[in-house]
Computed example of a mutant assay.
Amino acid sequence: MDFEYSPAQREVYEIVGELGRTKFSARAAEYDRDASTPIENLRDLGEQGMLKLTIAKDRGGMGSGALGEDPLLYLIAVEQTARYCLGTAQCLHIHCHGAHYVDNVCTDAQRDVICSDVVENGALLNATGSEPGRTRRGLYTLTTEAVRTDGGYVLNGVKNYATLAAEASYNVIFAGQPDKDPVGGHVGVAVPKGTAGLKVVEGSWDPMGMRVATSPNIELKDCFVSDDYVLGAPGVYPNNRWQAKFHLSFAAQYLGAAEGIFDFLSDYLPKRGTASDPYTQLRAGEIRIGIESTRWMIYRAAWLWKQGDEVAAELYSMQAKHRAIENAVITMDKAAQIAGSSAFLNSMPMPRYFRDLRIHTLHENLDKTAKTVGAHCLGEEFDTTARL
């Protein structure tokens, strides 16, 4: 395992870092106030080629993603984006996963249309499985129905947490066939923008944190999607454990956001006059150590994806995600201790950092992740897609 960035990885690190420092930071407060999608940020990323990170090189992409030539490459972009705007990082994460999924499960003809649209025109994709009550029912027990008809499927139902729904050129939607079991009947489709029957519910996204990662509800009513936009065979998403291929990008977001808090402390504490305090130094050192230990778990997990054992990569990715969540929460606590209450005036960035990071870490089930790893260690059955 090489602990140095490759030239391509270093270039992504520098490009996205520069965008974050000069543009994303300046826009973050306004996007947060308005709970609006960071279109300018995504456009800037697109202009630098970052929207094609997880599309294979034979389609003009950069060959990253869990199944790509360089699994770490897109994680660096997500991490660096989260360092300056966690909501934008979530949008990039969602797009990258939608694009990677399409690129890997579609026919060549579909790739020619959808992947080429991303590469050539900066088209945005998402991927929405979530819907009200899914946590209780289970990951694949969906109430949104896909009914087979001549030439495609008709969709009816409600989805939530549909990041990028209003801006996506293709809403990747997962639904269930009512006459089949949840796994065998699991269907994925790419609904082109403007398709009749797909409605983005205005005003349905107004959370305390992660306001920039605009994720409204979607209503689907007699929404016909032709076979040209049906993504793979029924059951391909659960059977190929695609959910487990996304663990690391969540971890990269938590890591980047913790790094952003440390960046703030490094600038703020000397100005406050407390940098010489031994307890301030202690907490700052603990935060730094936590960030570095988390980073190398994530990077090792990315390396494992190239070694040919997907289950081992999935399990270690879960461990890295668990560590990233724990470290994010610890970072917030220790940072608050040494920054003090003045750092939490709404004119400062710290309230937004904390709201975003604490809400976002709740997106993943810390206990279920640890339970899954423990089951594997004890020789019991386990499911690397478990996260809700």
Rank of each mutant, 00 (worst) to 15 (best):
F3V: 01
P7N: 06
R10P: 08
E11Q: 07
E14V: 02
R21I: 05
E30Q: 15
R33G: 06
P38L: 06
I39A: 12
L42N: 04
K52F: 00
D58Q: 07
G61S: 11
M62T: 04
G63Q: 04
G65D: 12
L73G: 00
I76C: 07
E79G: 02
C91G: 03
H95L: 13
Y101G: 01
N104C: 09
V113D: 10
V118N: 06
R136G: 04
R137S: 11
Y140W: 13
T143P: 12
A146E: 06
N156E: 11
V158M: 08
L164T: 07
Q177C: 09
P178W: 10
G185V: 08
V189F: 02
G194K: 12
V201F: 02
V201N: 07
V201H: 01
G203S: 10
W205T: 05
S215F: 07
S226P: 02
G232H: 04
N239Q: 09
N240R: 07
F246L: 04
F250M: 06
Q253S: 07
I261H: 13
D263Y: 05
T274C: 03
L282G: 12
L282I: 13
G290L: 08
M297A: 02
W303R: 01
E310L: 10
Y316S: 11
Q319D: 01
I325M: 13
A328T: 08
M348R: 15
Y353R: 10
E380D: 15
E381F: 06
T384R: 02
